[in-house]
Amino acid sequence: KKKLITNFEHLERLSNRSRYVARSCKEIRDRYNEQEDGLYYLTTANGMVYQTFCDMTTAGGGWTLVASVHENSINGRCTVGDRWSSQQGNNLNLPDGDGNWSNRNTFGTAEGATSDDFKNPGYYDIKAEDMSVWHVPNNFPLDHWNLAAILRYHTNNRFLRLYGGNLFQLFKHYPVRYNIGSCSNRGPAVPIVYDHGDRETTRMFYGLKPRKEFEPGFITFRAINNERAAMAICSGVKPIAGCNTEHYCIGGGGYFYPDQCGDFPSFDYDSLGMGQGWS
């Protein structure tokens, strides 16, 4: 009986969260003194209400989950599920691909963020200063994300202020588009603070050959490879040589020469998961 009451009280407390009015998890934390990680309702400037996950603990907290990039099929080449590049095939005539890095389209659910791609209105509505990134094994439930993550880090230099306050605005300055420039035209590389993992574990997540091309300890935006394909984010690393970023940067436009198109473009180039070559 005691357990039943506890569960009810727990649900009651969770449902009370729907009375909060805020545009970000930081506002909920600051205004309502909520310090528990979990799902909360947020409201956009236009009054649209949506639900997302708040990390209230990392580095003082108030982190709003706005997106997830999930690979449903590493063998798919810009096919269904490649929302962060293109679901319309590797196509020279669609240089932006699906365009989701710089539009107001939304998809997925917060609870399903490790099982499919996710993007909510916070992606373009929240004026933020810093970013945090978690790499969580596929299909893990929300209450285990933090513990299960293989890599967690955040920025702390308020770099987003310089780029309009969110990724929507940042990618207006640096379009994720095929043939927008060359390798030397990449966007900002921002130093990170590790919450789980370090520079060495970051390095080891990528292939033997990519390790000679990047420096760990950064998050980089809009990288461009030798073939002029654009990628959105190099997570944990800054490309410094070689320009073969398709092997270690995620998201992209709609065309990769010859056929490496995808949300995790060419992470499987050779010997997938064997720690050899480019893969």
């Binding site: 930081k26 990134v133 993550a149 293989i150 997540f205």
Partner: peptide, 15 residues
């Protein structure tokens, strides 16, 4: 990249 990396979703947060 390692299988760990390709079989993990990348979650993006703002503050």
């Amino acid at each position: 990249a390692s299988k760990e990396m390709t079989e993990a979703a990348v979650l993006l947060f703002y503050r």
